[in-house]
Design a protein around this nucleic acid. Structure first.
Lengths: 197, 197
DNA sequence: TAAAACTCCAACGGATGCGTTGGAATTTGA
DNA sequence: TCAAATTCCAACGCATCCGTTGGAGTTTTA
């Protein structure tokens, strides 16, 4: 059997991503990661250093995936709805990233990649502002707050799934409920941003 | 010095609330709680059992405080706005609750006090449904999803403060920004629920 | 063929945390 | 006055985890 060092690295990284998303930095043990990957613990340390370094690698990787995933194309009402829907879809399909960011936020650690993420969001806000000036979106709403609210609508479900289940009576694994939630998110985004009313 | 068992209980509970909100269930140590309260660890165990039981007590307490601070009186458009505003105010003034709920959301443990919390929310949802039938709220929106979205709008700021700061460019300790956020939440809630449009 | 790189395995030292225990003060109430 | 309750203190047994180490196979490369 030929060596596959890159495969070993990848399997370790994937196992670490899953474990970190599941249990956070504190709750994850290096032994569990190695066992999950089916690789010896010694390899884990020799490739990735200590636990904190591994955490940084995992988070940076997932942020890169996010950066190249969701885009805001136009700035009309339809685009707003699409954006909210796509964001909801991404979080529903990739709950690991949301969970990783939550763990990061709760541990009061300085957020990773602040500059790039800030620029990313400011570009979206500026697009909203322009759309407002063009009369495509409701005037009187702060575009930054609107942007933030759209993300809230899309991400809140994954953030407090227990609360979502208590209120709706169904879990996020229920496909029908998931579709209803998505439809609500899109409709709510449109109502929020609509220039009428 | 006279005994003050109730004070001892309270100090332990308050210390536990602060520590749990700060570090979560796993990250918190019983020794830290006792030290923070200035009370011996043995008292902590004799009063509250083990760590999980203490966690449940803390969470139930904080949810009770929220429930008695934020009431949904009527079901008209103004009441919806007031409800959203009051919820925002409470979370802004008591960020611990949001953090506790977030920790709970991240640990896959079954939520504490599910029955009572579910009943509490279902009562609100039912009120929304009735208001819809009366034509006071927008038809076509699932009342449970609407209820969930209102909480999202109010709580999301405290949940991901780093994200809020990246998007708005100001922190939650900025009083002007805080007022703008509150105004946005109230307005957004009204736009969401409004029967017009 | 020989050296270098990769992998597995078992076990260690040090640290931390949970929950408990035994003992000794102090205060309360009968 | 005396028993019960409250508090503090120090330490224990047990478990877990981190990060490392020494040794032994296997595969590649030179």
């Amino acid at each position: 059997m030929a060596w596959d060092t890159e495969g070993t690295r990848r399997r370790l990284r994937e196992a670490a991503t899953a474990e970190f998303a599941e249990r956070g930095l504190d709750g994850t043990t290096m032994t569990r990661i190695a066992t999950r990957a089916g690789i010896n613990k010694e390899r884990l340390y020799s490739y990735y250093g200590d636990k904190n370094a591994l955490w940084a690698v995992v988070l940076t990787d997932e942020l890169d995936k996010l950066a190249s995933a969701v885009a805001l194309t136009g700035a009309g009402l339809d685009d707003i709805g699409d954006f909210a829907g796509a964001t909801y879809d991404y979080h529903a399909a990739h709950p690991e990233l949301g969970r990783l960011l939550q763990w990061e936020g709760l541990t009061r650690a300085p957020a990773a990649d602040v500059a790039r993420r800030s620029a990313h969001y400011r570009e979206k806000v500026e697009r909203f502002a322009q759309a407002q000036r063009d009369g495509l979106l409701a005037p009187g709403l702060d575009p930054d707050h609107l942007c933030f609210a759209l993300i809230a609508l899309a991400a809140w479900w994954q953030t407090v799934p227990q609360l979502a289940e208590m209120i709706t009576g169904a879990g996020g694994d229920d496909l029908d409920e998931r579709a209803r939630r998505r439809a609500f998110v899109v409709e709510a985004a449109r109502r929020l941003a609509s220039p009428k009313a």
